[in-house]
Simulated scan of single mutants.
Amino acid sequence: MPSSSPDLSPTLAIIGGSGFYDFFGSDARSVDVETPYGSPSGSITIGMVGERTVAFLPRHGAKHQFSPHTVPYRANLWALRSLGVRRIFAPCAVGSLTPELGAGSIVVPDQLVDRTSGRDQTYFDAGGVHVSFADPYCPELRSAAVQSGGDDGGTMVVVEGPRFSTRAESQWFAAQGWRLVNMTGHPEAVLARELEMCYAAIALVTDLDAGVEAGAGVRAVDVFAEFERNIGPFKSLVSRAVAAVDGDDTCEHCRVHDGVTLPIELP
């Protein structure tokens, strides 16, 4: 469990991947948190972003040891809430389903389509609790990310992975009008909602998906290289978004359990 320290009081967190591990300066601290759902992906680093104390959790682990379908999502979100976090930015890499969004574009999605299977996606296995999820992202956090430079809006379809989409799947997604494809955005978003934490994804386009460009396909090595090329501007935008957040507590939109008796006690 985390040690007691005046520095360890984050209300905002970043769940990120490669390139965000050095988000803080040398004065940052790391804490380990155990949860009823096992260990999170890794130690949680706590440091300062401007004037705000922020927690960082590596989604895939410090050595990128977790594939999208094996990330311990429930442990990750529970661990952050137990530290006092109530608001989360979730930077992620995505494929683009439209030529209008080329590599290097940064998008703040406003809708999500779940195409995953077999992932633990709820804390409420009993009790008949049904969470409102019509608008899956926090409007206040989305606004902060958009005003910091992110492209406003678009639907992100989340696939199971770890394979990339077939050309037919990609063309089908694009035909629905969806703009982005990703492997980690669900169940992360709904678990945050169940824990009454504000959550917004900030997506960095690393490639055009298989169905967008004839003859093209997605290779992991190219995705990682493109992410690395754009990590500087991406981190800068996330830092601006953190600074633009007004308030520390869950917003009204994401406070979904008023009047409901939960089968578990939230941390």
Rank of each mutant, 00 (worst) to 15 (best):
P68I: 05
P68Q: 08
H69L: 08
H69I: 13
H69T: 13
T70K: 03
T70I: 12
P72Y: 05
Y73I: 13
Y73D: 09
R74V: 05
R74D: 07
N76K: 13
N76Q: 10
N76T: 13
N76L: 12
L77R: 06
L80E: 01
R81H: 08
S82F: 07
L83T: 03
L83V: 10
G84Q: 05
G84K: 01
V85P: 00
V85I: 08
R86C: 07
R86E: 11
R87L: 01
F89V: 12
A90G: 10
P91T: 11
P91S: 12
A93R: 11
V94D: 03
V94C: 11
G95R: 02
P99L: 10
P99E: 09
P99H: 05
L101W: 08
L101S: 04
L101N: 05
G102W: 03
A103L: 06
G104E: 06
S105A: 15
V107F: 00
V107L: 06
V108T: 13
V108S: 15
D110T: 15
R115L: 15
R115E: 09
T116P: 04
S117F: 13
S117T: 14
G118D: 04
D120K: 15
D120T: 13
T122L: 12
T122H: 08
Y123H: 10
Y123E: 07
F124N: 07
A126R: 15
G127I: 13
G128K: 06
G128M: 04
V129W: 02
H130L: 14
V131T: 15
D135S: 14
C138P: 02
E140W: 01
E140N: 11
E140G: 09
S143H: 14
A144D: 02
Q147K: 14
Q147G: 08
Q147F: 04
S148C: 06
G149Q: 08
G150F: 08
G153T: 11
G154Q: 03
G154E: 02
M156P: 02
M156Y: 03
V159A: 09
V159R: 03
V159T: 13
E160A: 10
E160T: 13
P162M: 07
R167S: 03
A174I: 05
A175N: 11
Q176V: 02
L180A: 07
L180K: 00
L180I: 09
V181D: 00
V181Y: 00
T184P: 01
G185T: 15
H186Y: 15
